[in-house]
């Protein structure tokens, strides 16, 4: 029973949270990597795009809730998602029209776009705080648990509980669906292929009659969807706070780079690598090791390798190590 208990504990405190967090990071990193691949810059406003989209979802959720509309055991926010995505898409396309398109016409270098994205980041950030404030917002409703501690114990007869929050389950299901649709779109549709072609070789794409503006529009639309979904899932799982979303930028960038900038598969892999590393290293492993090791060797301390505040350090160390060993990231991105 002991190893089984250890496994359950590990699943409960490490695997389940890390899979959920990894899915959220992966969706965020996909957005960053798409922009990097097609528009050729790292979008510093991505965290705030996520915050903005999530805010739109939250406001819609509140509206639905006050109108008495719910989604049964599922969070109402899922019903509000399409509205949030539409609002975020309008914002991103508007930003592209007002800010980025000018620099494309001027054939500006990528770093000019990076600087422009800093300005956009300030504006989004200020706007989000202006509308919804800086405080924590919880908007998850519906059933709280898919597997509750008691239910798991009764069903399996094990001493250790396993808890799966419904938001974690929803996160994973939604992420799988979104990724499947995205990959189908990129690999199977004419428009998706033209986006890959444009990212691969801009001049040749032009020679083939691919319209860059169309490619860019589709990119922003997809990014709006990815950012809003990632932000909403993160907010459902934890809570919504504009500043937290801004800070997600680092793990998201780290995930995208670890996976290989510009590579969608890499963004997903990177998201999970970063999430698992962060959760494992900042979780006190005492209980898990206690089950594995003989009594005499059982650790005295918590065996928390690093305090939770150092989770950024974990993303960062992984990033440096991966770049030393594989300069192009795990899935050979376009950054070399």
């Amino acid at each position: 029973m002991e190893p089984l208990h250890a496994l359950v504990t590990l699943a409960n405190f490490v695997i389940v949270p890390a899979v959920a967090y990894g899915s959220q990071l992966a969706l965020g990193a996909l957005g960053v990597t798409l922009i990097y691949g097609i528009l050729r810059f790292s979008n510093f406003a991505h965290g705030d795009t996520m915050a903005f989209g999530t805010m739109a979802v939250i406001l819609t959720t509140w509206g639905l809730q006050s109108a008495g509309i719910g989604f049964g055991p599922l969070p109402t926010a899922l019903l509000a998602l399409p509205v949030g995505i539409a609002v975020a898409a309008a914002l991103l396309l508007g930003t592209d029209r007002v800010v980025y398109r000018f620099y494309r016409d001027k054939k500006a270098v990528p770093v000019t776009f990076v600087i422009a994205s800093l300005g956009v980041m300030f504006v989004y950030n200020g706007f989000t705080r202006f509308v919804i404030g800086v405080d924590d917002q919880r908007f998850a409703d519906g059933a709280r648990f898919l597997v509750s501690a008691r239910g798991f114990r009764d069903a399996t007869g094990l001493d250790e509980p396993l808890v799966i929050k419904s938001t974690q389950a929803i996160t994973v299901v939604v992420a799988v669906v979104v990724v499947a649709v995205l990959f189908w779109f990129l690999n199977r549709t004419r428009t998706g292929k033209s986006m890959r072609a444009y990212s691969d070789n801009e001049d040749l794409a032009l020679l083939s009659g691919i319209n860059p503006e169309r490619v860019v529009t589709y990119t922003w639309l997809i990014v709006a969807g990815l950012a809003t979904i990632a932000g909403t899932l993160y907010g459902l799982d934890k809570s919504f706070k504009p500043f937290t979303y801004f800070q997600l930028l680092l793990p998201i960038f780290a995930a995208a780079i670890v996976g290989g900038l510009g590579s969608p598969i890499g963004a997903i892999a990177g998201g999970f690598v970063i999430a698992f590393a962060e959760v494992t290293i900042t979780y006190p492993l005492k209980k898990v090791l206690g089950y594995f090791l003989p009594e005499s060797l059982a650790p005295d301390g918590l065996v928390q390798l690093l305090s939770t505040d150092y989770k950024f350090a974990v993303s960062f160390m992984i990033l440096i190590i991966v770049l030393l060993i594989r300069p192009t990231g795990l899935f050979r991105g376009k950054s070399v």
Partner: peptide
Amino acid sequence: AAAHMRLLTMGVILLLVLR
């Protein structure tokens, strides 16, 4: 919310100067 105007303003100034 007026307090958050400063972030918005900084962003707008940066974008205007860059443009």
